[in-house]
Write a protein that binds this DNA or RNA. Structure first.
Lengths: 214, 214
DNA sequence: CCGCAACCTGCCCTTTGGTTCAATGGCGGT
DNA sequence: ACCGCCATTGAACCAAAGGGCAGGTTGCGG
């Protein structure tokens, strides 16, 4: 079992930590440049209260002061944004300051096995976002279009005007319009802007009324 | 401790599972419509070998057969895509079939505390993707616009027409156009479509000639 | 008070986008 | 040969977008 170190500005509170790890040390934030722990020999629990020192920056500093040590952030007011920021900065865990000892030990166990600990809420958001992301990559909408319609639709999704597309494909502007009208119909959108949102995979696409099919 | 059930097509292998959970049952895949476990009373470990039955669909079926039960997917050939798919489908864990008993117990503990278990590799990818995503949300372009211009710009980026925006903001359509003209000018774009691409953070935005400023 | 920026609007105009009603020709399947 | 799908186009038309000109209000800092 590695050495556990709690970093906090208020060294007098939070008995849950002592309960979870009786042998842990409890320290104030270290000064920049100091050595906090032997490389890789400790687990750092970082308590952040507000956003006065940017939590993400703090994590990066601590990482320098204790190279190779796992850093877990405990936040008084956890938010998905903050969690994302600290994890991006290199933390391996993010949870509420008020977590009960059992959960703290749980997290420690996961971290010591090389895992990352993320709260269910944030994780759900991550998964949803990622799924939406991959959905927009192999975006099946284009399969509904004919070869030529696809070309035109992609050009529109890139921001081109009808005239530009006509020049690029060496067809008349009228034909561009014809392909577009067909594409709108097939994809159930109203105009080129919504076509673009659909193809580019906008976060929140308004699901238009699909217009009576015939 | 809840009942653990292993679902696999090959009921003869994987002694690690028995080691981790000596009292666990081991069953073949259930037929559609059958009741697999009492609602919420079990943890289902689902072993998937290839992608013959789509793992995600399988998860959804199992979820019906054992409502309220946590489902953890064990994959012979884990991949980020597969992990993402099964988590999206409702699984609460995803790991390698070859996980050692200690890790299996670890996962079980996390799941029983209401957590989700995701391998570090996938999690890292999720975080990176999410970070990229949020970066494009608070994109600095909007800061160049006035409060009102920002509102209409966002509406346009969502696919709204001038008429709709006018109604929503309770201003005349002419004013909407005025705000838009100003926004185009400030952001150096030509029309609403390119505005949308800029704000929604299109992958490859054609960086238009910024039109001689004056 | 004056200048300035933001916000709001009407009138009128041009350009672009989108549709309706056509028609022509190729190509593959029945 | 015929049908369906696709690509192409013209003429005409209407709606939407975009912008020039002109004019208002409000609020804020010098």
């Amino acid at each position: 079992m590695k050495q556990h170190i709690f970093l906090t500005r208020r060294p007098d509170a939070f008995p849950a930590w002592n309960t979870a790890f009786p042998g842990a040390r409890r320290l104030p934030y270290p000064a920049s440049g100091t050595q906090l722990a032997k490389p890789g020999q400790a687990v750092i629990w970082l308590h952040v209260a507000g956003d006065k020192p940017d939590p993400a920056l703090l994590v990066q500093e601590i990482a320098l002061a204790a190279p190779g040590c796992a850093i877990i952030v405990l936040s008084n007011v956890p938010s998905d944004e903050e969690g994302l920021a600290v994890l991006e900065a290199g933390a391996v865990g993010y949870t509420n300051t008020l977590a009960v000892p059992e959960v703290l030990r749980q997290i420690a166990a996961v971290i010591e096995n090389g895992g990352l600990w993320v709260g269910p809420g944030l994780l759900q958001r991550l998964i949803a976002a990622m799924a939406a992301n991959s959905a927009q990559i192999n975006n099946s909408h284009l399969d509904k279009l004919s070869a030529r319609e696809k070309e035109v639709a992609l050009a529109v999704a890139g921001g081109a005007s009808n005239k530009e597309i006509a020049r690029r494909l060496e067809i008349s502007e009228r034909t561009v319009k014809a392909h577009l009208t067909a594409a709108f119909e097939r994809l159930g959108v109203r105009d080129r802007l919504q076509l673009s949102l659909l193809i580019n995979g906008s976060p929140q696409t308004t699901p238009n009324q699909p217009k009576t099919v015939h």
